[in-house]
Design a binder for these strands. Sequence first.
DNA 1: ATGGTCGACGTTCGA
Length: 258
Amino acid sequence: MIISSWNVNSVRARIENIKSYLLKYKPDIVMMQEIKTEDINFPYDEFSSMDYESHVFGQKSYNGVAIISKHKLKNIRTDLIKDKLKQSRIISAEVEFKKKVIQLINIYTPNGNPVDTEKYDYKKNWLDSLIKQLKNLSKKNENIILAGDFNIIPSAEDVYNVKSFEDDALYRLEIRKKLREMINLGFSDVYRHFNEDKEGYTFWDYMRGAWQKNNGMRIDHFLASNSILDNIKSVNINKDPRGREKPSDHTPIEIKLA
DNA sequence: ATGGTCGACGTTCGA
């Protein structure tokens, strides 16, 4: 089973790019972020005609997350985080795999820039709320896959020019520590589990020819409960969609379960 | 040097 996470930067603007990806790589489940639309305008029919069911937590113009799946998903939840601003940034669902119920949690963490503003505080509070919830959920179900756009660069080797990011909301020590807190609850950064020091960028800005110059960063992640690591056979950052026409600024990261 | 580029119920904001 292939599970993919992809910040699509508008599901409607990206629909042809997404369909090409689904046709070519046939992921079983895609956890999407930044769909940038209300539920009512989500392209349900496009995906159902390709045998995907859709579960959507949308929002007008900004944010929004969704999970599309070829397998039946259960217990869809969008209430896992107390969000003062009521932004649509988290959706979870359960999928059964080899007699195990795996809880899939799809997140779009606030960007947090510029630092030392209410935006930065919102990111910190949002992450604190997520950590608290993860702690609770881990007690109930030891099989959790948390994926999405974390807007966190884990380490210096995960960004093209660390000097310019030292005081950025994606890399500040305080923010990296929150990722560490999550991992310390009993999770692994799946990409780093399989790749000790290999570059694994998932995002390249539209500006300044970042893609052509490979000025990227690794901010889209899969965290998996250590108890299900044995079921994860591989991880792949699929750079194909980023190089196509009308790309998102992010590219999908995929894990294979068996 | 505050540029550059995307997307959205856009004439500006968020990334």
